[in-house]
């Protein structure tokens, strides 16, 4: 395990672009707790202070910050995809195998990098939420209510990165892999929208089981009630964390890892 990490460390850390991206990403994520408090978007000459709207108080802070932090995952996706497609374009994947790395170890080393990214991001997001919550909540009682959205964040990243890994192994060209990622995200939203539109309101939408949609159920868009602003109530309310989708997420992670492995195994280099 340590051996695989050493190998990957040399490959990624000494790659200037990747290093800058990674450092930038984690610095931004770590300082997110502070940065979000100085962002005050303007609407019609009104500065919206999210802190005063209660975005950072328990329990809403867990969902809001996790949802917001998820946008950063595209940074890591770029690095994960490039780290795999580079092996193909430099043909080092062939040399690595000839030198005695097995295909299993090769995939494992790539997955390890993703796992470290995911765990580190999750820890930082957790700390940011906790810090903001403690700072802004007047009388914090049940601090960890709503913290399950950080778990949702963890699964969302994990599924996203397993798809990235699979696409990178499959397509072998970073540009086309990115294009497919975008198409995939758009495609799922469109399918869900169509299904919602054409099905009766009570029935369950099967397209919720698609990978991106399923993980969105673990970390949905924050619920905002602008009308409450006028009456002085909290603008936010806590979304539903649909724990059953954790199983769907785990299934997808397993499927994409398996598919990547099978592709690697079957293909001649």
């Amino acid at each position: 395990m340590l051996r695989l990490l050493k190998i990957e460390w040399n490959k990624i850390y000494n790659y200037k672009t990747a290093r800058i991206f990674i450092i930038l990403y984690f610095v931004l994520l770590a300082s997110m707790g502070y940065l979000v408090t100085i962002i005050k978007p303007r609407f019609d000459s009104i500065n919206i202070d999210l802190a005063r709207l209660g975005a950072y108080i328990f329990p809403y802070v867990w969902q809001n910050i996790s949802y917001f932090a998820d946008f950063g995952s595209i940074f890591l996706a770029i690095i994960i995809i490039a780290n795999i497609t580079n092996e193909y374009s430099y043909r080092t994947i062939k040399q690595n195998l000839i030198d005695g790395l097995t295909k299993k170890e090769l995939l494992l080393s790539k997955l390890l990098v993703s796992l470290i990214f995911v765990v580190l991001s999750t820890v930082l997001v957790f700390l940011a939420c906790l810090g903001l919550g403690l700072y802004y909540t007047k009388n914090p009682v049940s601090i960890f209510t709503g913290a399950e959205f950080v778990l949702g964040y963890f699964f969302k990243l994990s599924v996203f990165f397993s798809v990235c890994t699979f696409l990178a192994v499959w397509i072998r060209k970073s540009g086309f892999a990115f294009m497919l990622i975008i198409l995939w995200r758009l495609g799922e939203s469109i399918i869900l929208a169509l299904e919602t539109y054409y099905s009766s309101s009570s029935s369950y939408c099967v397209s919720n089981l698609l990978p991106a949609n399923a993980t969105t159920n673990l970390l949905p868009f924050p619920r905002i009630h602008p009308q409450n602003f006028l009456t002085g109530q909290t603008v936010f309310s806590l979304g539903d964390f649909r724990a059953e989708y954790c199983i769907v997420a785990i299934a997808y992670i397993a499927i994409f890892i398996f598919l990547s492995y099978r592709l690697l195994k079957k293909r001649d280099l």
Binding site: N10, N14, Y15, Y90, R91, T92, K94, Q95
Partner: peptide, 15 residues
């Protein structure tokens, strides 16, 4: 086949 952005020594370290 080596990593073009790495030095000779770093490449050999990976090997």
């Amino acid at each position: 086949n080596f990593y073009p952005y790495l030095s000779a020594a770093k490449n050999l370290q990976i090997v």
